[in-house]
Design a protein around this nucleic acid. Structure first.
Lengths: 341, 341
DNA sequence: GCCCCTGCTGGGAGCGCTCTCACACCGCCG
DNA sequence: CGGCGGTGTGAGAGCGCTCCCAGCAGGGGC
């Protein structure tokens, strides 16, 4: 009774032989068992169990042309990746949803322009069924590169120019969220509301400034100060704003880290929050918010959910069974009321 | 003149036909061209260029049994991933080194115990040539699971129990680094040196406590306070220590974030750094250190280099051409002198 | 001038799987 | 009782590649 538990991995052939059926039938069972009679299904299942059979992925890919793998493309210039939990959280959502779809996550870390060739080759090489890319920088050629490779792609974050035929994207309602934040401040009677913006080459930052302006149509331009989505940047911008407008009574920070920096500066200057100046952030990033003192009022977005959504869109894109191409999705935001405003 | 630039991807067969050679020769050229005469090499290269040929990875894997892919296993319980740039930086090193070795990075995010089955199946399924795992938690069954799957693996961070036959690991000299830090404080004349430790189930944290004790053999146990590698934990622990020992004159924090929290508490209490209390951190994490005020003296470790090293060890492990199995590596640390101590 | 050896090249098998077809079998209706 | 449709099953052809091995030059030694 040969029972090769160890040694070379068993093939479908071996399973079929042990179950006393043909390779075709064994294959059918392994792939769901539709159209095979129960007793045979059982026999094959048992053989699979006993031999510890695991399908050879390469062989399957060779004939089906499906990889069961999706590339996640992260562009290096984003130094944020290191300091911003945003990506980690989104990747986590992506990972979860991919697992639910029996797909693997291949991480493609782009090391700047010089690396584009490699990426293009990889994407063109049919290693993955699709790609998820984060394209938020204005000057990035990456989207064009990806589009040219003709691989189904979903973007995270609104690309700068929305081409009509471009791949769909998932983003939160940055502009609407910003409006919520500022309106909240207004409703609290704040009248001199400043804004610490994010990097001007990120659409998220641009949209948030736009939302701010939507509410405060004729705000003094000097009430907006440039930050860079970091705590330090927020602290510096806050100092600058206090210099320009010692009488300001509220600040809308472009993200939570920036808000954290602003809070620090305010604390150092002995400005009370929220009594003297109210502060609102954006992102509702748990690991950041919990450090804030006082507790930070901020705009919440479902980051992990956005990651999952990206995968869902991609899966629909990959689904051959017709249906309209999925459209981009803007996810809603909500204001989380805490102590700072 | 048929020139299918678009349409189905060209095969080796097509390249061979266009170059007027056999498939075997074309294959040889594609794989380096050893043993093929120059004129033929040129012809094939040109055909590859013209047709835009890219080898089919699945077909290649099917016969060579090499995937050109490595799994990076990250265990979910580590909440740190979200707040600690450590992993991102290490993964970056891994990514770079893998690229240099023409391998892909498949991210395996383990979602707790219930997920172990999936991981085992994946690792056993021959999708990847090897694995890189981060095993730093005491209670993690993951190492056992991975070991059982018999896939070549290198660990990041010293596992709790060093089995003689276990996979190699890469870690920095946590204990030695801690010694350096404490010795530095001693050499500056500090006499009442406290320690804010990390989570007790992380070997890195344990080793750092041990290093502290190596230097201060008969330190009062109450001079060591539990932290959790976060800024908040550091701030709380610092407050606790000041309560217990108002006369302490130095603190060695188990990592930079902890040190940041300690600095915050000290500043709030009006304690001058380094005049009254000297502070030393661990990690030299750029994004953390730059926020520190005063600039943080800390123990430097080459995180990205460690990631690269993990890949190098794995590659040697995968290298069939004999040679001794690579041993674990402990990378050196160095004290970076700044203002806080 | 012959033979052997070295160095390239091509033919062909086969990696493990899926999927199309042809065929066998059963039950049912006429 | 014969024919017909439906359902299951198996044989076999590839998917695109690598690699073994046979074969065929060409050059040098005797």
């Amino acid at each position: 009774m040969p029972d090769p538990i160890t040694g070379p991995r068993p093939t479908l052939e071996a399973v079929a032989a042990r179950a006393g059926v043909s390779r075709a039938t064994a294959s059918r069972v392994v792939n769901g068992g539709a159209g095979v009679r129960a007793p045979l299904v059982d026999k094959v299942r048992r053989a699979v169990e006993e031999l510890g059979y695991v399908p050879n992925h390469a062989a399957r890919t060779l004939v089906t042309r499906r990889n069961g793998a999706v590339a996640v493309i992260i562009a290096e210039p984003e130094f944020r990746i290191f300091s911003d939990p945003f990506f980690a959280q989104q990747v986590r959502g992506i990972s979860r949803e991919l697992t639910a779809n029996d797909s693997q996550l291949v991480l493609l870390w782009v090391e700047g322009r010089g690396d584009h060739d490699r990426i293009a080759r990889y994407l063109g090489g049919g290693h993955v069924d699709g790609a998820l890319a984060f394209s938020v920088h204005n000057d990035d050629e990456l989207p064009a590169l990806i589009e040219k490779s003709r691989i189904p792609t979903v973007f995270g974050g609104r690309p700068v120019e929305e081409r009509s035929l471009a791949a769909p994207y998932v983003d939160c309602d940055n502009r609407g969220g910003a409006r919520q934040a500022v309106q909240h401040l207004v409703s609290q009677g704040r009248r001199r509301i400043a804004h610490i913006a994010g990097p001007p080459d990120l659409t998220a930052a641009i949209d948030r400034v736009d939302g701010y302006r939507d509410v405060l149509i004729d705000a003094d331009p000097s009430m907006v100060c440039q930050g860079d989505f970091t705590e330090k940047g927020g602290a510096l911008a806050m100092a600058e704003l206090l210099e320009r407008h010692p009488d300001l009574d509220a600040v809308f920070a472009a993200n939570d880290l920036t808000a954290l920096g602003a809070l620090r500066t305010l604390r150092e200057r002995g400005v009370r929050v929220p009594e003297d100046v109210a502060v609102v952030g954006f992102d509702d990033m748990a690991s950041v918010v919990e450090q804030a003192d006082p507790a930070l009022t901020t705009v919440h977005q479902d980051i992990e959910g956005m990651g999952r959504l990206m995968v869902k869109l991609l899966m629909r894109l990959l689904d051959e069974t017709g249906g309209p191409a999925p459209a981009s999705v803007i996810t809603p935001t909500s204001l989380i009321h805490r102590a700072s405003a």
